[in-house]
């Protein structure tokens, strides 16, 4: 769930307030959003993806709040990491163009990991137009 709006980093653009699908944030003092309804957070990380200032941290725990410490998160390089991995932000290229799913799918099609199952043969022919 969302755990942190960095007061130091936030540039009061209001984007997170807008994009959060479950309306977790409210506009706070000086335009810095507040986490107004943390229990509504669906841990989708979209606010992190959109925040231009890497000011938000969504903890991976989806079902309960956890304590976070901004200095530690900064030291571990955890703020803004998702946005970077999408290739979003000035001077970056979308990583969608490095999406290797097609290679993985091709490999999986050639070497199925699950044994082929014997389907129950249909007794009626498939519907014909």
């Amino acid at each position: 769930m969302i755990e942190l709006v960095s007061q130091d980093r936030c540039v009061s653009c209001g984007i997170c307030v807008r994009v959060c699908p479950t309306q977790v944030f409210d506009n706070g003092a000086k335009g810095i959003p507040t986490i107004a309804r943390q229990e509504d957070c669906q841990t989708c990380f979209m606010c992190e993806a959109y925040c231009p200032a890497d000011a938000l941290y969504v903890a991976p725990e989806a079902d309960r709040p956890v304590q976070v410490d901004e200095a530690t998160l900064v030291a571990e390089g955890k703020l803004g990491k998702y946005r970077a991995s999408l290739g979003w932000g000035t001077g970056r290229r979308s990583t969608a163009q490095e999406d290797d799913s097609f290679r993985i799918l091709a490999l999986a099609a050639r070497a199925p990991t699950a044994p082929p199952q014997a389907p129950a043969a249909p007794t009626a022919p498939g519907p014909r137009p």
């Binding site: 999408l86 290229r93 979308s94 969608a96 163009q97 490095e98 999406d99 799913s101 097609f102 799918l105």
Partner: peptide, 21 residues
């Protein structure tokens, strides 16, 4: 303009879509 990846033949691979993008 969706930035699809390109395969070894220079063809766009359109098997998947990154959600946010």
């Amino acid at each position: 303009g969706y930035p699809f990846p390109v395969d070894e033949h220079g063809q766009q691979a359109r098997r998947s879509l990154q959600g946010p993008e």
